[in-house]
Nucleic acid binder design. Structure first.
Length: 896
RNA sequence: GGGCGAAUAGCUCAGCGGUUCAGAGCGCCUGCCUUACACGCAGGAAGUCGGGGGUUCGAAUCCCUCUUCGCCCACCA
């Protein structure tokens, strides 16, 4: 009797289901960790508030969602902490761009108004990002959403800074750092990205001051020559021996500078003579400190990358002052050429550093910045990693991580920005005493009574100086909150490998340093990257980004998740085609629709109350019942193992095969006749059990469709939710290797009959008569017991399972010599059948020959494992029996 | 300059020493609107597993090498 489920439309419409389900989960508080139980904690890599997410972020967050849903169902107190990052440079950049469109700069607004303006922007985009996470189904604990610039979070940042200061790990460094002339701020080494660039190597003549000749210097940056304080060559370079102690004149300016020597010079590069520009090259800075430690290090470029003016020491010739550095380069080259001081220009491949936020070529620049001493922080982490206290998967990242940790350099944390955490360093204007403070001081602690006004450092902290505290600042550190006690240390961090150093390693360092030597997580899962078919990263500038909202609108969230999770194995890139969303996302949509229809059918067959599977008497089970129940056990085990091993793709595939190929294609089809009769409750119980298990197993990957169907299953309380339902456990009592093998034979027999039908172009409407002859290990009862199934699925009129083959019809051999014979009167001629069978024979003979070679090979028999040899022997026996049957058939037909 | 990854059907991928291991999805071909599903069902065609060499009784699977692509790191100006 068809139930009300037939009212359900035959086509699943995710749009009508997903938003309301998500709301139900929220209303029920399903994403909050339960009060009891062992915690499982993931902290989200907080997305920058600058931009909407694309499917690249989608992959990352969906992986986290699969893991958190899995562990939640397994009974852990699952905490997935969400939030966003204020993203200092990036955000300030975006807002400054907006201002520029209005013809304004941040200086027009002033610091306070500008920061207010950024806040307004951030509130808006932050909300969009959270919305997107919800749309793709993320089951974050929204009650604990954090932002790295929240008041409480800011206290954590300040605490970390002051602690490090007190420990002597923060210092003011005077050195050449990466400076972005567009963002007008210093950058860390990690924020200045290398880009291979094809440039020029200019060979420039520096005349000797005494007029006795000249030397040639090769440089990629002629515009910095006015900042030269000398030339150096390698002390062992004989070519320049005669120049020792001499001086040269800087071309175009005439300034006289000395020639020195330094070991750092590469004799083989360029001319072996290096110009030393200490204020605009980190390497030159070091050389200058060795060779001319007392010499000034003149800056000849302004902060925004222009040639310095007269006020800046007057080293730059007047006609070049104020020119942009690249325009200046061109002009200088021209001038040099005119004066005959340009020897040659060579093509030169080299890496140029660019700002990771605005892509401007970074200018090395001597300045004063705050640095963190990293070695004391990194060493314990490296040691802990080698002890195995946390792991990084895929394991291949080990070398990268270890090299970085071992060779770590101090971290420049000050940024000349307005958007971020103000550096809590204060200076007394009277006595110049400088200190870091957890609270804003009003007076200098060193001056007696009336100190001078106190000034705070104008700079802000590097964004990463706040996000490196994420795993514990989010839970209230430095206060000893219950959350902190419960959710630190966490478990899994899922993120992109490109921020392994920028973020992951620093979180580990802060974790070990501030949290009593405990790691913030035990597993770091480095995901692959979502790329287009040309293997390019998704990015706005390339126009190949896909907004997850578009995919969800077209195909549903489950389809999006299905493609991203199934698209690649652990840590592998996922390739999607932005120009063909249909092909990319249809498989997931199709699967969701298939589940929908399996559900529609099963639900229509189930009574209001279904017998639990453990109350079914095993004696009542048919072979097909036993088979699907055994398959369910295998699926439960394999899916669970795969998820435990972070093989989400494998888990997804396994469930898919169970639901679609095993349950729908075989069991449902096999069981239909038994259902139609309204007969016993056994098939209903089996269907309900298997479908329930499949939905549970699928839930982490396709949460919406699984939840929607699961709630419709009989016996559900109105408030029961799959999202917090129990993860299936295997029931050993339902394991059944025998049924697995026997039903496998039945399937094979059906497939052979279908093949024959198709080969002989017999319409399914024509009912055929067939015979199955069980031989070898096969039992006739296996086939007679499933007679109805075989007849129905192979479109047979009748099936004989007891008689011997009479040689009439089309034959196929399977198993250990068992045989299928399909009666096809008139449709076949003997010649054709002879050809077909001898073709089979040839194939079999080839396989047997190959096997014989193997088995007569003394080395194989003696050296291969015994079970492998045994298996090969068994295979040979089986094929030999098949061959015998075939040979008999050929004889009977009188084939030549 | 160093390190890493990938190369398997037209496309996107799985398999990573031995069970028909040469697979899946999409695409393609042939039948089917079989009352859950044409976003479907059934049956097919399709790859000398990038080239070469080696280890092994046995290699898509391990080692070396080459080619192509991609990524990360790097103070030769």
């Amino acid at each position: 009797m068809p139930g009300p489920e037939f009212e359900l439309p035959p086509q699943y419409d995710p749009r009508s289901v997903e938003p309301s389900l998500y709301r139900r989960w929220l209303d029920r508080g399903a994403f909050a960790p339960k009060d009891q139980g062992e915690p499982y904690v993931i902290v989200i890599p907080p997305p920058n508030v600058t931009a909407v997410l694309h499917v690249g972020h989608g992959l990352n967050n969906i992986i986290q969602d699969v893991l958190i849903r899995f562990e939640r169902m397994r009974g852990r107190a699952a905490e997935w902490l969400p939030g966003t990052d204020h993203a200092g440079i990036a955000t300030q950049n975006v807002v400054e761009k907006q201002l520029a469109a209005e013809g304004k700069t941040r200086f027009d607004l002033g610091r306070e108004a500008f920061v207010e303006r950024v806040w307004a922007f951030v509130r808006e985009t932050g909300d969009t990002i959270i919305e997107q996470l919800k749309i793709i189904g993320c089951s974050c604990d929204w009650s604990r959403t954090r932002f790295t610039l929240d008041e409480a979070y800011s206290r954590s940042v300040r605490e970390a800074f002051v602690t490090l200061w007190d420990e002597g790990l923060i210092y003011r460094g005077h050195r050449v750092i990466h400076w972005c002339p567009h963002c007008l701020t210093a950058l860390s080494d990690e924020e200045a990205e290398h880009h291979d660039t094809s440039g020029n190597l200019y060979h420039i003549t520096y005349p000797l001051a005494d007029g006795s000749g000249s030397v040639t210097v090769a440089t990629t940056r002629p515009e910095t020559m006015f900042g030269d304080i000398g030339l150096v060559y390698h002390p062992k370079d004989r070519r320049y021996k005669a120049f020792k102690g001499k001086s040269v004149k800087i071309p175009l300016s005439g300034l006289v500078i000395p020639i020195g020597t330094d070991d750092a010079v590469d004799k083989a590069f360029g001319t072996g003579m290096l110009k030393v520009t200490p204020a605009h090259d980190a390497n030159d800075f070091d050389i200058a400190n060795r060779v001319w430690p007392k010499e000034d290090k003149p800056l000849i470029l302004t902060e925004d990358g222009k040639m310095a003016g007269t006020g800046d020491g007057g080293r730059v010739p007047p006609e070049l002052q104020g020119l942009d550095r690249f325009d200046a380069r061109k002009k200088i080259v021209k001038l040099l050429e005119k004066e005959g001081l340009l020897v040659k220009v060579e093509q030169h491949q080299h890496a140029v550093r660019r700002c990771y936020r605005c892509d401007t070529v970074v200018e090395p620049r001597l300045s004063d910045q705050w640095f963190v001493k990293m070695k004391p922080l990194a060493d314990p982490v490296l040691a802990a990693y080698r002890r195995g206290e946390f792991r990084i998967i895929p394991e291949r990242w080990r070398a990268t991580f270890e090299n970085w940790m071992a060779g770590i350099r101090d971290w420049n944390i000050s940024r000349q920005l307005w958007w971020g955490h103000r550096i809590p360093v204060f200076t007394c204007t009277k006595c110049q005493y400088q200190w870091a403070s957890r609270t804003d001081p009003t007076a200098c602690p060193e001056c007696d009574g009336g100190g001078g006004p106190v000034e705070q450092d104008p700079d802000v902290l590097d964004t990463w100086f706040s996000s490196w505290l994420w795993p514990f600042a989010t839970f209230g550190w430095p206060e000893r909150t219950p959350d902190l006690a419960r959710f630190y240390p966490g478990h899994t961090l899922v993120t992109a490998p490109e921020i392994l150093q920028l973020w992951v390693s620093r979180m580990l360092m802060s974790g070990y340093h501030f949290m009593e030597q405990r790691p913030p997580f035990t597993t770091v899962y480095l995901t692959g990257t979502v790329r287009d078919t040309q293997h390019r990263k998704m990015s706005k500038s390339l126009g190949n980004g896909i907004d997850p909202r578009d995919v969800v609108q077209l195909y549903g969230t489950d389809a999006l998740r299905w493609t991203l999770i199934g698209g690649g194995s652990l840590g592998a890139d996922v390739i999607v085609d932005p120009s063909d969303l249909e092909t990319t996302f249809a498989p997931g949509r199709n699967f969701a629709n298939k589940l929908w229809n399996i559900g529609r059918f099963i639900l229509s067959q189930l009574p209001v109350s279904v017998t639990p599977i453990d109350r079914i008497d095993r004696a009542q089970l048919t072979l097909a019942d036993r088979w699907i129940l055994a398959r369910a056990q295998a699926t439960i085990r394999e899916t669970t193992t795969s998820l435990e091993q972070f093989r989400l793709d494998e888990a997804a595939r396994r469930c898919y095969e169970f639901a679609w190929n095993e349950l729908a294609d075989w069991y449902v089809e096999a069981v239909k006749p038994r259902l139609a009769g309204g007969g016993p409750t056994v098939p209903q119980a089996v269907l309900a059990y298997c479908f329930d298990a499949a939905l549970r197993l699928l839930h982490p990957v396709v949460p919406f469709i699984s939840e929607e169907l699961w709630q419709k299953l009989p016996g559900r309380a109105p408030d029961e939710l799959l999202v917090v339902a129990e993860w299936p456990k295997p029931r050993p009592a339902l394991d059944d290797a025998e049924a697995d093998a026997e039903f496998g034979r039945v399937k094979t027999a059906i497939e052979l009959i279908r093949s024959i039908r198709a080969e002989f172009r017999v319409s399914p409407k024509t009912r055929l008569r067939a015979t199955i002859v069980a031989r070898g290990g096969d039992r006739a009862a296996t086939f007679s017991g499933e007679r109805d199934t075989i007849q129905r699925l192979a479109h047979l009129e009748s099936l004989a399972t007891d008689g011997a083959s009479d040689g009439q019809g089309v034959h196929a051999v399977f198993g250990a010599g068992s045989e299928v014979v399909v009666a096809l009167e008139g449709a076949i001629d003997v010649q054709q059948e002879c050809r077909r069978l001898s073709g089979e024979m040839t194939r079999l003979d080839q396989q047997l020959a190959a096997l014989a070679t193997k088995l007569t090979n003394e080395s194989f028999v003696s050296r291969a494992p015994a079970d492998v040899v045994a298996r090969e022997r068994e295979k040979e026996r089986t094929w030999r029996e098949q061959r015998n049957v075939l040979a008999g058939k050929l004889r009977a037909l009188g084939c030549s």
